[in-house]
Write a protein that binds this DNA or RNA. Structure first.
Lengths: 348, 348
DNA sequence: CGCTAGCACTCGAGGCGCATGAGTGCTAAT
DNA sequence: ATTAGCACTCATGCGCCTCGAGTGCTAGCG
């Protein structure tokens, strides 16, 4: 563990703050003048030399100012940072942005992502919960044409999921309706994660009991649950904001990053890392993530929930140099707000 | 109408071809040497001077080669261009890309968009058809909680659309089921575009006939159809490919364009322009579109259909300087392929 | 009369040198 | 321990120059 005197911390804090603001290496004079330290620039220089030795700062070249290293940034985030409290006005703005709210779940998440991106001027991201955490509400089979069946699954919270499947034999709509009724009863209120087991269990019973009348229904459901559920998905919005960061004027660098976004599984893994941790805002700096091509970005994230169950994670992705002191409160507030919106008004 | 000698056309064609390939202004020598014209560079120079006078070419600065103007490009596209025939191999590749096909409609369109972007190394775009062209198949109301109802609408082709609405009074699921049954019968096989009228008509009847039993169902449906349907949507994929074009290394320019993409209604309008024209590949050059911020891009598009009905438009968006001779066949082929995939295998 | 060879001219791109100044590290004095 | 002072470093920007790709024009050729 690193031990710093309070002056060291002040200096490190000042360097990070200034660097975040300007994007330029910070010199000793600037700090002595602008950050209310009661010492001369020469002293600052000595301190900075120490910090450099500790690996918290670095010099792009000999005659330039200092820039925080990733380690220095991490230390700043862990120990020194002071948040800008969110103004009532800003809170109101975010709240208002949520106002024109559809009741559609996916829309809500996408909008959240957009709000994050707009308020932080970076890319906003929302991890869409695995379906498995929600409870079964309703299932419906619809015969689209011969041997093609559309299945619609609705969760208790109003999430709609649909897949169409090809089935070997043609099944009439009447028959399918029977299946629906049967399954709706069978699966009532079961968490979607447990449906598979429930079905298996039932299949064993059925085989013996009433002559496989519904075994086809069970098999069908089984097959559907096999694939399409399970996997999480994400919404990334406002990637264009990343273009505004001077660090990404280099097109090649930017492209590498956006290409990494293309492959969403990477980002999902990144977000998953923060999902395990029970709560609060988390920050992952690219280099810590061990994910190639993501080394130049940072993620500020917070889980959101409905009542007691963790649903997913939302956050902001930007360059390592971003205004953490402002974005962190925004992310936190947004997560709270979203959780609040998801709270069932009346549960019955 | 412009009249050109065949040599003029050859020269113009060569300039455009070379410019498209290299992105650099083209000099007279290059053309004389590389494009099999049997005349000297001096002659070419004279021809080019003529073409410039006609507004088909222009010079970035006095001592540079020529670059086609938008007018020149248009002329080239209308009269001179020769398509590279799509190799059987390429066809096979595109076909294969479609292979791993979900039966989900939206997925299919999104994938199409991605395929276009990948094969043309530009942004792919697919206009998602207005729901109104398809026919009614099934409707279902589900009570999510008190006073919140989820409506699911399924079209004959397996398209799923859902919205949730807040209703003033609480309605029991049993009651809602009645509505569903009633409406399913009432609206059977009606084009979604005509549902509104059908409902209005029915409302008039109902009011008199059986005591407004279903008037609530009608009103509900009415309200839903009011909003959420009707509007088209698009999938744009592979915007990152645009970064590869040297004309977009200038970040500001790129940002303007991507911001224009953000506001999808603009692009929709652009695509709509080509939807009216009954068929075949169409090309719109940015400056012709009268849409601000889109002046630096070109669109190559083709409608796709199911059987006889036009469903939507797909295409490729890129800089004005792109490889039309290759992209046009790709777009055409893809549109055909998609139409083919959408063809109902067995209609019943 | 159309084509071409030749030539003078234009002008952007890129390389070089130099001055500038922000910033450093070190040393000696307080 | 802090600071003033100084010599040193090096990226940046500017002016200058050269180079060469490309042009337009003119005169001569078939």
């Amino acid at each position: 563990m690193i031990e710093l005197t309070s002056r060291d911390e002040e200096v490190l804090g000042a360097v990070v703050t200034d660097y975040i603001k300007t994007g330029e290496p910070v010199g000793s004079r600037t700090i002595a003048k602008r950050y209310g330290l009661k010492v001369s620039s020469a002293t600052i220089r000595n301190v900075m030399a120490d910090l450099e030795e500790m690996g918290l700062l670095q010099q792009p070249h000999t005659s330039a100012g200092r820039v925080p290293t990733e380690k220095g940034l991490r230390f700043y985030l862990d120990s020194i940072i002071q948040f800008k409290k969110l103004q009532g006005q800003e809170r109101a703005m975010i709240r208002r942005a949520f106002q024109e709210t559809t009741t559609d779940f996916k829309d809500l998440l996408r909008r959240t992502s957009r709000i994050l991106s707009r308020f932080c001027q970076q890319a906003g991201v929302v991890l869409w919960p695995k379906l498995t955490v929600t409870r079964f509400k309703h299932i419906e089979f619809i015969r689209i044409r011969a041997r093609q069946i559309l299945m619609i699954l609705i969760s208790k919270s109003g999430l709609v999921h649909h897949t169409s499947i090809d089935w070997e034999e043609d099944i009439s709509q009447d028959e399918l309706d029977k299946y629906s009724r049967y399954l709706n009863e069978l699966l009532e209120d079961i968490p979607l994660g447990e449906v598979k087991e429930r079905i298996l269990e039932e299949m064993r019973k059925e085989k013996v009991l009433f002559d496989q009348l519904y075994s086809r229904a069970l098999e069908m459901t089984q097959r559907i649950f096999q694939y399409s559920l399970g996997d999480a998905d994400i919404y990334i919005e406002g990637q264009i904001n990343l273009l505004k960061n001077p660090e990404f004027t280099d097109v090649d660098r930017l492209r590498r990053i956006l290409e990494a976004f293309e492959d969403k599984s990477r980002i999902i893994r990144l977000l998953d890392m923060t999902l395990t941790a029970s709560s609060g805002v988390q920050i992952i700096l690219g280099p810590e993530s061990d994910l190639a091509d993501l080394s130049e970005i940072g993620l500020i994230s917070s889980p959101y929930r409905r009542g007691d169950t963790l649903l997913g994670v939302l956050g902001v992705i930007g360059p390592l140099r971003m205004d953490y002191s402002r974005i962190i409160p925004v992310v936190e507030f947004t997560a709270d707000l979203l959780s609040e919106l998801l709270e069932d008004p009346v549960e019955d």
